[in-house]
Structure formats: C-alpha cells, structure tokens
C-alpha cells in the first residue's frame, strides 16, 4: 500500500501537492486523473523518489522511497527517457541487468505483440513506436508496482488500443498495483478499479470506479467534467 500523509511539494512558488493525504491500495489498477499541472506526475515521481516532499511523509509498504523500494517499481515517465543510441535489445539488456523480476519470455512475447524488433534503434523510430518500446521495458518485468505517467499522451488511436491491451494483458489482479496518470480518461476508463481526481495538488474526489458511476449516474468523463467545471467548488 502507498500512503501519502499530509504531503506538500513545492517548486519555487508553485505548489504541486498541497497537504495531500491518500492511501493507494495494493493489487488494483488505479487512475490518477486531472488536468495538466494538477500534480499527477509529481505524485508518481515522489513514489519513485525523483521528487522529495517538503513536508509530510510517504511510505510504500511501510518503507520510505529508496533504492530498496525501487527494486519493485517499474516506472514509465511521460518523456522519452531511454538512451536514443541504443537498440531495443540493448535497452532491454540494460534494464534487465538491474532487476531480478525481469521476465525474458514475457519480453519476447510483448516484442512480437507490440510489433517491435530488437534491432530497432530508438532514435530512428516514430513517437508511437518509442511509446511502445517504453511500455515493453516496463511490462517485461513482474514488478509489484507499475507507474505509468501519461502513457497515451500524443499517441494515435490504434497505438493507444495496443498500449491498453498491453497494460491489462498479464496484469495480476490482487498482487500487482498499476498507477496510471492521465487526463485522457475515455480510453482508460474501462480498465480502472479506483480513481483519484487531483485538483490543484489536492484530492478532489476519489473512490471505486463502479461506485462513483452508480452514485453520480454518469461516466468517469462526466464526473471529471463536474469535478473540474468549477475550480472553486468543494467536493
């Protein structure tokens, strides 16, 4: 379980997370939803340890984010973070040298599923292919916690479908936790178990997706529109 207790994170005068309190349960696919600049990416970065809290505390299964917790985290940032001169095979060899949970059979299967070739040089492939390559490296591991920061951003509709299929393909419900940040809910809505709507660094609304849909009698997109329709409204 990931627990944020009264966590505040500022960048200069900008407050990214504002005394945020949330508990992310284990073994579910969780959506961290919200518009650009709401603090979603900062939240993920803090789980990996790329950002540190100004105040409050964050724990992953009772431990502070550290070198040790990173062993069981597979993080996919929004930006292109792979070495562009590497081939997909070289990038896979690089990543697998750091994790015991690398699954070679899964890697080979995903390689074919995502229509990628080991000899492809990362800098020479399209943005969609690079997104798939990032996904390949994240999902070739049997990591307990998978963090996906805007995995669909700037990706065409066909590739989006393939990305979503990859996310749920070998998902181990109850055992593996997937956190997905996105502001593009339509494609992702069907796979989410729980959601946290983040607004101005705070949780505006959260809960089980089915329950929220029933309570509001609306889809997640409509609920999101309601949440963000009035920036000053309180939920």
């Amino acid at each position: 379980m990931i627990e944020f207790k009264n966590v505040t994170k500022t960048f200069g005068k900008t407050t990214a997370l504002d005394h945020i309190c949330l508990s992310i349960p284990k073994g579910k696919i969780i959506g961290i939803l919200g518009p650009n600049g709401s603090g979603k990416s900062t939240l993920l970065k803090m789980v990996v340890g790329l950002n540190k809290a100004n105040s409050g505390s964050l724990s992953i299964d009772g431990k502070n984010p550290s070198q040790e917790t990173r062993n069981s985290i597979s993080y996919l940032p929004e930006i292109d973070y792979l070495y562009s001169w590497m081939t997909i095979q070289q990038a896979a060899d690089f990543v697998k040298s750091f994790y015991r949970d690398w699954d070679e059979a899964k890697y080979k299967e995903l390689l074919s599923f995502l229509e990628l070739k080991p000899s492809m040089v990362i800098k020479k492939i399209s943005k969609g292919m690079r997104a798939k390559a990032k996904l390949l490296l994240s999902f070739s591991r049997n990591a307990d916690l998978i963090l996906l920061d805007e995995p669909l951003s700037g990706i065409d509709i066909l590739t989006r479908d393939r990305i979503i299929e990859t996310i749920i393909k070998d998902y181990r419900a109850g055992d593996q936790t997937i956190l997905i940040t996105t502001h593009e809910i339509r494609e992702i809505e069907g796979i989410l178990d729980e959601v946290f709507f983040i607004r101005n660094g705070k949780v505006a609304l959260n809960g089980d997706v089915e329950t929220l849909r029933e309570e509001h009698g609306a889809s997640l997109i409509e609920i999101m529109k309601e949440v963000y329709s009035n920036e000053n409204s309180q939920w």
Binding site: V48, G49, L50, Q67, E68, R70, N71, I73, Y75, P77, I79, D80, Y81, L82, Y83, S84, F98, Y99
Partner: peptide, 14 residues
C-alpha cells in the same frame, strides 16, 4: 539534457 536521468534515477542503484 537527454532526459536519461529519469531512467538512471529510477534504477535501484545509489
């Protein structure tokens, strides 16, 4: 500059 620091910092190495 190449954003590869995201990869390096997310690895379980100090």
């Amino acid at each position: 500059n190449n954003n590869t620091i995201y990869l390096i910092m997310s690895l379980p190495v100090g």
